[in-house]
Structures are given as C-alpha cells and as structure tokens.
C-alpha cells in the first residue's frame, strides 16, 4: 500500500534545543495512525512541518505525494488540519466559519457536504451562534467540519480531544472511523491512552526522537511480565509503602488500583506481608494486564 505521509530524517532545532531529531516514519494510505508522547516531545513541531507552517532544518517529508518545502502550495490543498488550540474565528457564526474555510479552498459548502453531514448535523440547530459561544464538544465538531470541507486526502489532528468528555470523545473517534472508511488518512496525537489503542499503528515519540513504531498490540507485548496490581482502602499510604519494598522498580496510580513494575526477584506474598506489617492490613497484590498507558509510563521513566 502506498505511503501518504513519508518522513525521512526530519530534524528541527530551536537554537540549542533539538525539537525533532532525525525522525523517520511513514503512514500508509487510508490508515489511522497515532502519535503519542509527553508534552514537549516534538509532536506539535512535527505537525507544523507537515502542514508547511515550519521548514525543517534537515531531512524531508512528503504528504499526499508533495514535498513540504518544494511543493508546499499543492500540499496545502490536500490536507485538513486541526491545531491543538481552537483556531476558528470566535466572532464569526457557525455557518460563516464553514463558508469562510470553504471559500479559502475554492469549494462550495454544498459540494462536499456529504462528507461532513454526520458531524455537522449536530450543529445545524444553531447556524447563527458565534463559534466562540459554543461548548467544547461543539467547537471540536465545527473545527473538524472546517478541516474537512475541501475533502482533503489527509487529516492532521493535534490533540483534538483535549478537554472533551468521555462520551463526546467516543463519538469523535466513531467519526474518525467513518472518515477512514472513506479513504481519508488520519494522523492524530492524543494524551488519552484509550484513544491510542484505537489507532492501527502508533509512533512513540520523546525528546524529538521516535522510540518505536508498531501496532498497539505489538507495542505492549511483554508488558504483563512482572506487572502487578495493588490495592487497599488507603491508596496514598499504600503507594508510598510499595515504593520502599525490595525489587519494586516503579509504582504508580492506575484508576482503582496501583500498578507495580518489579524485578524477577519480586515475591507478591512477601510484599503483602511486609505491607501488613506496615499497618496496611487489607493490602492485596495480584498480576496485572499491561496496556499502552503502562508502556508510556515505562518509557517516560527510562528516558528521564
């Protein structure tokens, strides 16, 4: 399958700071690809290069067959971009924003309305509301509609669901699945690891470097090894106590339980009796199933 995004040794520096350090990966046509990494990893810089808002210092990147430097004008017509911050005009109405973006790309709203209809229908009730007065979920739907109105081949989404509630996030990912079925290639970054698991492939990025690229399933292979749950009614004292136990590498909150990563020598039964001696009489430890969130925390710790 052909690659719609192709990134080779891409490097960007801001003075001393290396924001992107020889980044290479590719995204095949019609796929849903996740970009995962901590704040400051270089994700937004990468988006800005792929959308031709910044030029790379070294390396090359092509989107939809167009080079980000040489063919930037042609490239821009093939992409839809949702930046991290809400970037529509707050003092234009819902309809005015949509028509404005359509006219920038020289298309009519009605020409491509079928593509955005499932998303935009929820905004139809208030065509004359100012975009700035919409709630978070509605802003996001309008931004996605504006990014799609010229029927781009590639959708570039930089943390589109930050500040969005769990139900609206699920709906949003449902819409992405529909767009993907229509052949649109999607590159999306997120800080929600449940969303990362919905991508077909993921690139893990930290400090400007790509650490790994694979399917979510392959990335978390082996994560269950020496991974345990711990719980007690006193979770914060438990967290502090577990960290003092021998053979514990890391312990962190994980929803209703704690997760422990341990060395081979770790013995759960011994650990429980030590915790009980410390007064945590209801402490329990049992094997855990690892996911992308565990992987992320492990990589963040190893990388400092």
């Amino acid at each position: 399958m052909k690659n719609v995004i192709d990134i080779q040794n891409l490097t960007k520096r801001y003075g001393e700071l290396v924001a992107l350090d020889h980044v290479s990966f590719s995204v095949s046509e019609g796929s849903l690809f996740g970009l995962i990494g901590p704040d400051g990893a270089g994700k937004t810089t990468l988006y800005q290069i792929l959308t031709t808002l910044l030029s790379p210092d070294e390396g090359s990147a092509a989107v939809a067959g167009f080079d980000v430097v040489k063919d930037y004008r042609k490239l821009r017509t093939e992409i839809g971009y949702m930046p991290e911050r809400f970037s529509l005009y707050p003092d234009l109405t819902v309809d005015e924003n949509l028509h404005f973006f359509a006219s920038l790309f020289g298309v009519k709203v009605k020409d491509n309305f079928d593509l955005i209809a499932p998303i935009f229908d929820q905004l139809k009730k208030f065509p004359n509301r100012m975009a700035g007065a919409l709630s978070g979920g509605m802003k996001q739907k309008l931004a996605l509609s504006c990014a799609l109105i010229h029927r781009p081949k590639v959708l570039l989404l930089d943390e589109p669901t930050t500040g969005v509630d769990a139900v609206s996030r699920s709906e949003f990912w449902g819409m992405l699945a529909t767009l993907k079925e229509k052949g649109i290639t999607i590159l999306v970054s997120t800080s929600y690891m449940d969303e990362a698991e919905r991508c077909e492939r993921i690139a893990l990025i930290n400090k400007g470097r790509i650490l790994d690229v694979n399917t979510p399933g392959r990335l978390i292979e082996g994560m269950d090894r020496n991974l345990y749950n711990a719980s007690s009614k006193d979770m914060y004292p438990l967290l502090e106590a577990v960290r003092t136990l021998p053979d514990v590498k890391d312990c962190y909150t994980f929803g209703a339980t704690l997760h422990i990563t341990a060395n081979d020598g770790f013995n759960p039964d011994d650990a429980v009796s030590k915790l009980r001696q410390k007064g945590l009489e209801d402490a329990r430890i049992w094997p855990a199933k690892g996911n992308i969130e565990d992987l992320f925390i492990k990589l963040a710790k190893e990388d400092g």
Partner: peptide, 30 residues
Amino acid sequence: GGVDPSTRRKFWEMIYRASSEGMTVFVTTH
C-alpha cells in the same frame, strides 16, 4: 487537560499529599 500519563500522575500525587495534610480539593477532570 492534555497532560501526558506520567506527568498527570505526578500531579495527582501532589493532590494526594496536600489532601493527606488536610487540604480540601475540589477538582474537575475528563
């Protein structure tokens, strides 16, 4: 909001600590 998994855990440990010292915390999250 928008904070990665390991950084937001560190933040929550600070909330836990403040609460264990008697601070009342009223917090929203997604």
